[in-house]
C-alpha cells in the first residue's frame, strides 16, 4: 500500500489537446462513477485549452478521495487522446499502470513551423517502458459514422481498463452529449468498451 496514492483510491488521467473532448469524457467518467456510489474528484486545467495547448483531466475515485490531482508515478490508467501527449505524460504512470494511446497525431506549433520533427516511434518506445494499448480511435469513430466521436471510443476503452462494475454508462452518456448524437456516442463508447483490449 502506498500512502502517497491514498490506499484504495484509483487515479485516471486523460491527456490530449484542446478541442479533443477530454473535458466531456472526464465529466461522463466522473458522473458515472459518482452515481455508482464512489467518492469522486475530478480536476482539469483548461485555462488556455481553446488555444491548442496541452490539456489534462484528472479523475480519482474510491471510498474516500482527498487530493483531486495525480502526481508523478501515480496514475493507474492514462488515456492519451493524442500520441505526443502520451510521451509527455509517461512519467505520471504508476508502476504496472496502463497507458492507452490513440494513434493520432496533432502536430504542435514547433512541428508545424518545421522547427522540430514530430517524434518517430512513440508507440514502440512506450511499449518498451510500460504496459500500453495502441489503437486508432479516429478510424474507429469514422467507421461508425463521425470522427468526432473519437473521444467516446477512448472513454469506452478507458472505462473497460478501469474495470468497475455497476456503472450506468449509457444513461450517463445520454444525459451529457448533444441532442441527436446520443446513439452515435453510445455506439462509439461500446466499441471502445467491448471490442478493444484487454490490453497488455
Amino acid at each position: 500500500m502506498s500512502a502517497v496514492n491514498g490506499g484504495d483510491v484509483r487515479s485516471v488521467l486523460m491527456v490530449g489537446v484542446g478541442g479533443q473532448g477530454t473535458i466531456l469524457a472526464g465529466r461522463i467518467l466522473s458522473e458515472g462513477l459518482a452515481e455508482a456510489g464512489y467518492d469522486v474528484k475530478m480536476s482539469e486545467i483548461h485555462g488556455m485549452s481553446q488555444r491548442g495547448g496541452s490539456v489534462s483531466t484528472h479523475v480519482r475515485f474510491g471510498e474516500r478521495v482527498r487530493s483531486p490531482v495525480t502526481g508523478r508515478g501515480g496514475a493507474d490508467v492514462i488515456a492519451a487522446f493524442e500520441k505526443l501527449e502520451a510521451l509527455r505524460w509517461l512519467e505520471y504512470l504508476k508502476e504496472g499502470g496502463l497507458m492507452l494511446i490513440n494513434d493520432f497525431e496533432i502536430p504542435p506549433a514547433p512541428v508545424l513551423m518545421g522547427l522540430e520533427p514530430y517524434p518517430d516511434g512513440i508507440a514502440d518506445e512506450l511499449s518498451g517502458r510500460a504496459r500500453v494499448g495502441v489503437f486508432d480511435a479516429r478510424a474507429i469513430a469514422e467507421g461508425l459514422g463521425n470522427a468526432r466521436a473519437m473521444n467516446m471510443v477512448l472513454l469506452g476503452a478507458l472505462a473497460k481498463a478501469v474495470g468497475v462494475g455497476g456503472v450506468d454508462w449509457e444513461g450517463t452518456i445520454r444525459r451529457n452529449v448533444k441532442k441527436g448524437f446520443e446513439d452515435l456516442n453510445i455506439r462509439a463508447f461500446e466499441h471502445g468498451f467491448l471490442r478493444l483490449g484487454p490490453f497488455g
Binding site: 508515478g73 504512470l93 508502476e95 517502458r129
Partner: peptide, 27 residues
C-alpha cells in the same frame, strides 16, 4: 501529494521515463 511526500519523507513514486524528447505544445 507526491511533492509533499518527497520533500518531507524523501520518498515517493517514480514513473517510467523515456529518452525521447516531446516537443512543447504552447497555446
Amino acid at each position: 501529494a507526491d511533492i509533499i511526500g518527497k520533500a518531507v519523507f524523501g520518498r515517493g513514486a517514480e514513473g517510467p521515463k523515456s529518452d525521447l524528447k516531446a516537443p512543447q505544445r504552447p497555446p
